[in-house]
Design a protein around this nucleic acid. Structure first.
Lengths: 131, 131
DNA sequence: CCCATAACTTACCTCGACGTAAGTGACTGA
DNA sequence: TCAGTCACTTACGTCGAGGTAAGTTATGGG
């Protein structure tokens, strides 16, 4: 036998109280990127279905490139569906899936947390910075 | 007068059902970085208080540089406190604050979501990729 | 003939997140 | 004297997220 363990050891699989900590990180990384949250919440506010140009206007500051690539990621992940209407000029509508909607609940939890606690974060930052 | 607005307009402040959408993005960006979630959850699993080297061992793969900088950010944001014991060799303990603990609840919501839904995401990705 | 339109794609560039490796300081025990 | 310990910091390099701007497609309208 080796020496007794001196410090608590964490089961790598338990690190997130989840069987797949890497999946948790992956989701957080996706949701934490620059535009996903705005697109998802805007789409929801627009009734769960909207076309490209509507989202472009709904999310101030986003470029076509980022809107396009973020929507593609959301589609790949099964969060939204894409429907192309072969008209001229083309029309494309994006719609939230049940999966996407189900993610909205825990996400809203974080939005609410910000509403309640962000000022405390700001205060803590100020205190930390001035010394 | 210009043309009448043809599409729904979103109040930029309403985009997140929050008075501060930028704060929401900021939080998501923080939580969505590579190590924060692992450090926070590990610290919680270790009883809410742990020293640097414990966290180093608890979070597999993290470097001292990233552990140090991430902890510094968490401290600045008021999520953890840092206590230095001037011994030799030095000992430093990090402890979750009430603010940090309060963030754990909505975060756990996302962890749970992954547990329930990640397989669906994986499936959607596979379907999308093979065509 | 030319422009506007919607929904993109492509090319190019910047900048910061993150990784790796080494150094630091002060002391203790061999 | 020298190695070991802990909690870092510093220097350096890479890589990809994201910004900007222009091009593309097909068509109807002036």
């Amino acid at each position: 036998m080796g020496k007794p363990t001196r410090t608590k050891q964490l089961d790598p699989a338990a690190i997130c109280r989840s069987s797949d900590p890497m999946a948790v990180r992956e989701l957080l990384t996706k949701v934490g990127d620059k535009w996903t949250i705005f697109i998802v919440l805007s789409l929801d506010l627009l009734g769960g279905r909207a076309r490209f140009s509507e989202l472009e206007r709904a999310v101030p500051g986003i470029s076509q490139r980022m809107l396009s690539s973020t929507l593609k990621m959301l589609e790949r992940d099964g969060m939204v569906t894409r429907e192309l209407f072969p008209e001229i000029p083309p029309r494309v509508e994006y719609e939230m899936t049940d999966l996407g909607r189900s993610l909205l609940r825990p996400t809203q939890g974080l939005v609410d947390w910000v509403k309640e606690n962000w000022q405390q974060v700001r205060d803590a930052q100020s205190r930390y910075d001035e010394r």
